[in-house]
Design a binder for these strands. Sequence first.
DNA 1: CGTGGCTTTGAATTACATCAAACCTTGTGG
DNA 2: CCACAAGGTTTGATGTAATTCAAAGCCACG
Lengths: 257, 257
Amino acid sequence: MAKNARNTLSPDLPRALPAPGVSQAPNAIMPMCAACEIREFTFCSALHDEELGHLQAIVRQVRMAPQQMLFQEGDDAGNVYNILGGILKLYKLLPDGRRQITGFVHQGDFLGIAASGIYSYSAEAVTEVALCRFPRRQLYLLFDRFPKLEGRLLGIATDELTAAQDQMLLLGRKTAAEKLASFLLALGHRMNGDGGEDKPIPVPMTRGDVADYLGLTVETVSRTLSRLKKSGLIEISEAHRITITQFDALQDIAEGF
Amino acid sequence: MAKNARNTLSPDLPRALPAPGVSQAPNAIMPMCAACEIREFTFCSALHDEELGHLQAIVRQVRMAPQQMLFQEGDDAGNVYNILGGILKLYKLLPDGRRQITGFVHQGDFLGIAASGIYSYSAEAVTEVALCRFPRRQLYLLFDRFPKLEGRLLGIATDELTAAQDQMLLLGRKTAAEKLASFLLALGHRMNGDGGEDKPIPVPMTRGDVADYLGLTVETVSRTLSRLKKSGLIEISEAHRITITQFDALQDIAEGF
DNA sequence: CGTGGCTTTGAATTACATCAAACCTTGTGG
DNA sequence: CCACAAGGTTTGATGTAATTCAAAGCCACG
């Protein structure tokens, strides 16, 4: 009955509207930064309303269908992005196809920062996605004039680094159950905000995606979720809709107690 | 005969000398930034010679013995550091003692950046260590005046993020042999520079440290190294001195071919 | 209504962990 | 200078969590 969430247009999708009456290429719309609902969550909030024109001048909005690639590992890193809505997965591959998803990015997240001029991972849409695209060189030119932009990006990078270290602990030292408990809690927090006990969590990614994020196989993910369900910690009404029914117990598992 | 590298004073240790004739607390020396040999590898190089006084005014040099803690996860993040010499390990713990080492930091590396005002990991000296300590608040005050500092830190954070993603791929998807091959190649590059075939790599950390870095056990690390040795890819003259004898073959393993 | 992809479950296998013990190195004190 | 204690390392035997192989069920879509 319920549709697969991956093919559902996310309700949180378009926030910055195109300027009315301006003809636009269908896939690259100029958004209205001043009206952007998520501005305060992004680096854009480093600029005041009256400075915003400098960002608006270089940004374009793009939309993606599920499974569409935004860029691939090895591509020239020409752009950086803010996610307006939807979810993308970032991943790296080994030559034989083994895949590690290094993160899922959500509304308000920043994406595409690259040490060299080359993306070090691939980015693919999980759901429908809308994002703001900034040409990297043009954005970096603004750093001289608005150093606060750089400061915001440093803050974002620092947060990501902390998250990456948590994920290393998870990948290197947690059991399958601990990994899934951690994942569900983090996803619940991201999708529903804090204190999301008993509110169903949309899980738009496939079991395979979850497996590749947690360093497991599809089967282990499925089995471990079934076991958590049988233990009464979670409910799985549909495969892509999971409810945490014992928040504290799940948290204890996630943290290794 | 040869001493354990862990207890050897690293030959690369002290670079920035204390001002002569100035009395100093034994454990907090004011270094001479202008004479610093590794300045160009650190964020300090964002400032010109004539601006360097602003850094010099807030920096203190500290030294550590092996196994000494620099800070612990959860401590108030009062300082950030540049490594002058020696090696530290950064790690996170689970309540039952399981440990994940998230990185080893070496000469020229930056350390202590924290999203909140709290360190999210612990830092402990592996060898003797010398570092420059900067009070975080005072350093951040300089950002307004010298935004280029922030730019350098962003670059550093970006590089670390890329490394963290590589490590996630390693932890989540590589086999024990692939993990150790990757580790040895990276360590060799760090200790000996590029093209270090046939030059012994000092491995100052214990097998336990390596295990906790790669998400393995001590025994698996030891066994896997023995196997690589028997296959003729590496030589282990002493436990803490390993030579890569077949660089290309090891690289193929490391990358999953 | 049939096809393809995703999910779940079961059975067999395996890479790595755990348990155990010997060995080696380094530092200590007699 | 030697004996020995304490860690660290290596190797062997055994156990197990997670993978692999296999197949059935489910759902969404053409």
